[in-house]
Design a protein around this nucleic acid. Structure first.
Lengths: 148, 148
DNA sequence: TTTGGTTTGTTTGATGTTAAACTATTAGAT
DNA sequence: ATCTAATAGTTTAACATCAAACAAACCAAA
């Protein structure tokens, strides 16, 4: 995916990296999304189930921060998880504006079983990297992601 | 963004990198999308204008491959670019199934002026990396992106 | 040269996403 | 105590996206 832009060398190098990073992430996530779709899950639904499983009950604001989606969207995602009886809402007694989301028994069982299978797919995607490369990729992404 | 999953070390390392990579890419693209929105452009519209500018006229299938979007979606994106008089459709005389998309004068002028400003935003995003880190990030993303 | 399979693009229906306007609640300042 | 700000969540309207069904054109094989 070379760049044809005639800018400074720095600009060209940055663009090339940006394009490679975006394309790699999107193509990986497109493939993973298909795996999720087999279970009628969206990426956002999965992200929230995962956060609830591994971090515990939390309110919608926090969930939105975790999966980088808007508040309005979180409302819908939680609606859909509630419809499948995977999660429940309850008002936070300490702050009645907030709604705490919790996994149901059914939701917990589901995500506990499904998660390891999904991890396998992710590991497959990254299996071309050596362990050192994997670490370095993580470090660089973290460094650039903190920018704001 | 630590992982709380109790799997093998390899699984945990992979997950951590996956999460960092996904979050970094999404947060960068969210910020860039705001810059595009100032000009009433979506990420897909921008991607197509950019491809037309730097690679030249091409059909919808090729454009879809470039921006990793479905065929049906490309139809709509081109519709919208046509509405703004940024691009035109014309049937490929060599293959009457295909539609060749081309920039209009107005579209070319627009993207030529806008692109460098957008590049500046992208360079800003990556400015925390040294030149060597930038190259290495690109190499690793390319390596992992080819998988599939 | 016709048949069957493939490819390109469009349409349709369902769904995800966002921004913006809104409600209810909280917290802070005076 | 009482305004005022800010915050959490919901709703709405507009739009992007995808998969699937479809039409038109191509191509290869018999």
């Amino acid at each position: 995916m070379p760049t044809y832009y005639k800018g400074s060398q720095k600009e060209i190098d940055t663009l090339n990296t940006f394009i490679k990073m975006t394309r790699a992430t999107e193509s990986i996530n497109n493939r993973l999304a298909r795996h999720l779709a087999d279970e009628n899950l969206t990426v956002s639904q999965f992200g929230i189930l995962e956060a609830l499983l591994h971090i515990g009950p939390q309110n919608q604001k926090e969930l939105g921060r975790k999966i980088l989606k808007s508040g309005g969207n979180i409302t819908l995602v939680i609606d859909n998880l509630e419809k499948r009886n995977f999660a429940t809402r309850k008002t936070d007694p300490r702050d009645r504006r907030a709604v705490i989301i919790e996994l149901t028994k059914k939701g917990k069982k589901f995500i506990e079983e499904f998660f390891p299978k999904h991890v396998e797919k992710i590991v497959d995607e990254y299996s071309v990297l050596t362990p050192e490369e994997l670490k370095e990729l993580g470090r660089l992404c973290k460094k650039v992601g903190i920018e704001g």
